[in-house]
Structure formats: C-alpha cells, structure tokens
C-alpha cells in the first residue's frame, strides 16, 4: 500500500508536468506560425478560437481522424517505434528541468548530462523512421540528420563544459544558483550565440532543416508517415525545440531566477520567469525561421566542425585560464 501511494504521488507529479508541456507545445506551434506570418506581413492562423489559439487543437483532431498508412515494404515494428521514440525522448527530458529551487521532478546530480544524453538520443527517432520507411528520400533525410546532429552535439557539449567550468557542479539547480550575481550570457556571450545556432541545428530548425528539406527531399524522414504518427513526430520536434530553449534559459539566462533581485520581481514565482525566458528564446527561434535561407549541406558541416568546434574549444581554454589565473575556480 505504501508503494502504491508513492507511485500515485509520482504519477500525479508527472502528469502535473507533462500536461502543461503538451499544451504549451500545441500553443508554441501556433505562436511559431503567427510569428512567421507576421514577419512576412501575413495574418497566420487566426480563425479557430480567439486569435486562432485553438488552431493546433483543430490540427490535432484532423490528424487523429486521418488514416495511418504503413507502407507494405517497410519494417513495421521500427516504423511504428520511431515516432514513439521521438515523442518519449522529447518528454522525459523535462523531468530534470527546475522550475524553482524546489519545483523539480528529479533533482539529480548529473542533470545537465541527462539533458545532453536525452537530446543526443533524439537522433534515433529520425534514423529509425528514415530507415524503416524503406524509401529513398526518408533514408537520405535520416542519413543527413544523423551526421548533422552528431556534429552539432559536439559543439553543444563543449559549450556546456564552458558553463560547467564556471559552476563546478552538474546539477541544474546549482547552475541556476551560480548565476545569482551575473547571468552567464554576459561573460560567455559568444558561447550563447554558438549554443543558439547549434540548438537550431540540433532540432532541425531552419536554416538547418536539411533532414526534411521539402524542396529536395519531400520532407525527408517523415515522408511516409501519416495521421497521428506524423503528428507525433511533429509534436516531438516542437517539444525538443522547447527543451532546447529551456536548456538555453537555464545555462545562460539564469533559469528560474528573476532578472533583478529586488522586491516586486522576486514575488513572481520562478516558473513564470523560466517560461518567459523560454518564450523569449522561442520567439528568436521563430524569427530565425522566417528570416534566413537554408544552408547548403557542405556549408552546414563546415560551420559545425571548422568554425564552431575550434571556437568553443578555444573558449574552454580561455575560460579555464581566466578562472585559474584569477582564482575563481569553484572548488569544494
């Protein structure tokens, strides 16, 4: 009985986290389309509900009622597993995101490594989908995305090392608290820019959306998917984007902490600040989508390996030497 009550408590907590995440994923899709439209002087989805807020729900209903088509020559088990893997990985990562000093589902010692590991597993959903479809375009998309995500993970990892050097702990709450006096975006600004661009590449957002490049690959790895399975890929992708924004907010923008540590601002709960910071980063993501053209594949690889990796590695040396020379290394 005791176990059961613990289990119920945890399930309640998980639902309390997951339902808002899923709802905000639906909202964020709407926001993305709206921002995109406004940049191009269009209206965007504005018919369903007030300001078109319910557009994503209408889309979801449409997807649910569409037929799921499984190609006869596909590898059926892996074909069905792929969107499930994408969705699950996008959601389990939220377990370690701290919404305030105490509001975190799992306050583990290696929180940032967990986030990094889960985001690096995200590539499997895409590879599995692309391979199991047994079709040329999805396969090409999967191969592209595998190479792309592995490349940009490297620079994200090195950027995380930069932040960890200043913090001295892998716990996400410690990372947030270490930014009490100054957000890391100020001393590590170049790293923030590189992190932002790598996050775009890691989540297959434009200008790095080569895995799905609709003009050449007819939507890449998700060509053969339809109905709810396609919607799951889609939701997983946006949940991943939100996660990357949350990661950026925690690593560089002070997480759940208020920007100014004075009375009226500290009253606002940490979750609100975190959400505002995630929204800020997400609007940047959406603007980038509207503004820049797609990269060519060799340029993408060059940017990842020949520009970002040396730059972020050099910055690790710089940060480490600075901290060592001025005796600022967090030692305990």
């Amino acid at each position: 009985m005791e176990y059961l009550s613990i289990v119920f408590q945890e399930v309640y907590k998980i639902l309390f986290l997951l339902v808002p995440v899923l709802v905000s994923v639906a909202m964020i899709v709407w926001l993305d389309r709206r921002v995109w439209a406004f940049v191009q002087k269009r209206q965007g989805p504005n018919v369903v509900g007030p300001f078109g807020l319910l557009q994503s729900l209408a889309d979801a209903l449409k997807y649910i009622f569409k037929e799921i088509i499984i190609p006869s020559s596909s590898n059926k088990v892996i074909f069905i597993l792929a969107p499930i893997v994408t969705m699950t990985l996008a959601l389990i990562a939220w377990a370690v995101i701290p919404f305030s000093a105490t509001q975190v589902l799992a306050d583990i010692n290696v929180g940032i490594l967990y986030l990094f590991a889960v985001s690096s597993l995200g590539v499997y959903g895409i590879i599995m989908g692309g391979w199991a479809s047994n079709s040329k375009y999805p396969f090409l998309g999967a191969i592209r995305s595998a190479a792309q995500m592995v490349s940009y993970e490297v620079s994200i990892g090195v950027i995380i090392i930069n932040v960890l050097l200043c913090v001295g702990s892998l716990n996400l709450n410690d990372i947030v608290i270490a930014q009490q006096n100054m957000w890391f975006v100020i001393p590590l600004f170049p790293m923030f820019v590189i992190f932002f661009i790598s996050a775009l590449a890691e989540t297959n957002r434009p200008p790095f959306d080569l895995p799905e490049a609709e003009a050449e690959l007819v939507a890449g790895y998700q060509t053969e998917y339809s109905g709810m399975m396609y919607a799951m890929f889609w939701l997983g992708e946006y949940a991943n984007i939100l996660l990357m924004c949350a990661m950026g907010a925690i690593l560089f923008l002070g997480g759940w902490m208020s920007p100014i540590d004075v009375y009226p601002f500290t009253l606002i709960p940490g979750a609100i600040w975190l959400i505002l910071k995630i929204l800020l980063l997400f609007i940047l993501f959406a603007l980038v989508k509207a503004i820049v053209p797609r990269y060519r594949y060799d340029q993408l690889m060059r940017l990842g390996w020949k520009v970002f990796l040396p730059l972020s590695l050099t910055w690790v040396v710089l940060t480490a030497s600075y901290l060592f020379y001025f005796k600022l290394l967090p030692v305990n």
Partner: peptide, 24 residues
C-alpha cells in the same frame, strides 16, 4: 550516475549512431 550518463552520451549518442550509419 556519471558513468551511466557518459555511457549514454558516448556509446548510444555517438558510437552507436556511427555503427548504424555504417551498417545502413
């Protein structure tokens, strides 16, 4: 937990992706 996470990042996140890449 550190070893476990590094195992996930290095083996699953990088090495196995390359395996898969080559095999495919």
């Amino acid at each position: 937990e550190f070893l476990g996470m590094i195992m996930l990042i290095v083996y699953v996140g990088a090495v196995a992706v390359l395996f898969l890449f080559v095999v495919m």
